[in-house]
Design a protein around this nucleic acid. Structure first.
Length: 340
DNA sequence: AATGGACTCAACCGCATAGAG
DNA sequence: GCTCTATGCGGTTGAGTCCAT
């Protein structure tokens, strides 16, 4: 079955020969491609215009960058994909010299599997259940190339990020501080790191989250919990500031949290896009770095590490955090140069 | 060395959309 | 407003290659 443009005439299909490439390059460099449907005839090719266009765009274009994707390119793909989904052409616009086809293939053959092996759902970028993550075999190339930093244990470093910038916010911050203070003492392993079991994580999270939610409708607060496992990537759990997200989109705000008030993935993406475009919103990503310092100076700055090799409850995270309007990311989304 | 499964990536397919008539 | 055509895009396919057994 061919497309409309191919069905009328006998056209060659399959791989392009060097001779065909040469004809196409010669034609386009001298005459351009104002009308792709006329290119085959003018170039003397037994191909359909669509095939010529694809061959030129994906392979013959002189400005194409060849070779492996860099780590930076990989990170850009992941970051933009988190926001746009499978919009390969849009993603490719962020990568000069790369085509949508190339990005798509790279995603499907490498990134997707890498994310799954790290416990992320490549479609939503949220955490997979442990069963789903375990069901995915490691990527062949990863097996071969990586100096396996991943262990079966999940040690998560949690960093809560908050910082008040107004009296009103300080009030709510006090409430959050109080909740955090109530969690102590944490079982410390050293001065800057706290190791928590999964139940402790659940307890501490619910306290913090409850406080944040209680004041969420009144104060623009964004809470980040940064986690880091044994791999090199760092991710974020965060409560999206709906005052910011929904206030400019016209969507109905979701002021109540919980599984019954899920924010749809698409809405989340649109909201996240708007959020990225709003400088003010970005400034509302507050940083609190030390739980202990928080108690002393009203700022938090402690890494809370969850050393729970056998019990890290992905399903808890998935079921309790994600549906409540929490997003996750692998690297700093704020670094994304947004130019849409 | 042979073989079969896994993987890559160029190319195709089909749908959506824009624009011309 | 309708139809037709060209173009763009995302999903899928399959030939070639790699690698473990």
């Amino acid at each position: 079955m061919g497309h409309h443009c191919c069905s009328k005439q006998k056209v060659k299909r399959g791989l392009w020969s060097p001779e065909e490439d040469e004809k196409l390059i010669k034609h386009i460099t001298t005459h351009g491609h104002s009308c792709w449907s006329s290119v085959p005839k003018l170039a003397g090719l037994q191909r359909c215009g669509k095939s010529c266009r694809l061959r030129w765009i994906n392979y013959l274009r002189p400005d194409l960058k060849r070779g492996c994707f860099s780590e930076q390119e990989e990170r850009i793909i992941i970051d933009v994909h988190r926001i746009l989904g499978n919009k390969w052409a849009q993603i490719a616009k962020h990568l000069p010299g790369r085509t949508d086809n190339e990005v798509k293939n790279f995603w499907n053959s490498c990134i997707k599997k890498k994310l799954i092996s790290q416990g992320f759902d490549p479609n939503t970028h949220n955490l997979l259940s442990r069963a789903a993550a375990a069901a995915t075999p490691p990527h062949r190339n990863n097996k071969k190339k990586t100096n396996n930093n991943h262990t079966t244990s999940s040690v998560f470093t949690i960093e809560t990020s908050l910082s008040p910038s107004s009296t009103k916010e300080l009030v709510s911050m006090d409430m959050i501080k109080a909740s955090l203070a109530a969690l102590s003492p944490f079982p410390h392993t050293n001065s800057s790191t706290t190791v928590l079991t999964m139940p402790q994580f659940q307890t501490s999270w619910s306290h913090l989250y409850e406080s944040a939610c209680n004041y969420y409708n009144h104060v623009p607060i964004k809470t980040n919990i940064v986690y880091q496992n044994h791999s090199t990537s760092t991710g974020t759990f965060g409560i999206i500031n709906e005052n910011c997200m929904w206030g400019v989109t016209g969507f109905e705000p979701h002021h109540e949290f919980g599984p019954s008030n899920n924010i749809g993935h698409e809405e989340m993406q649109q909201g996240a896009q708007v959020q990225l475009q709003e400088e003010n919103c970005l400034e509302e990503v507050y940083k609190v770095n030390d739980l202990h310092e928080f108690n002393k100076h009203g700022r938090i700055a402690e890494n809370v590490t969850f050393d729970d090799s056998s019990d890290f409850d992905f399903e808890f995270v998935d079921s309790e955090l994600i549906p409540c309007g929490i997003y996750t990311n692998v690297n700093s989304i704020d670094q994304l140069a947004w130019d849409c």
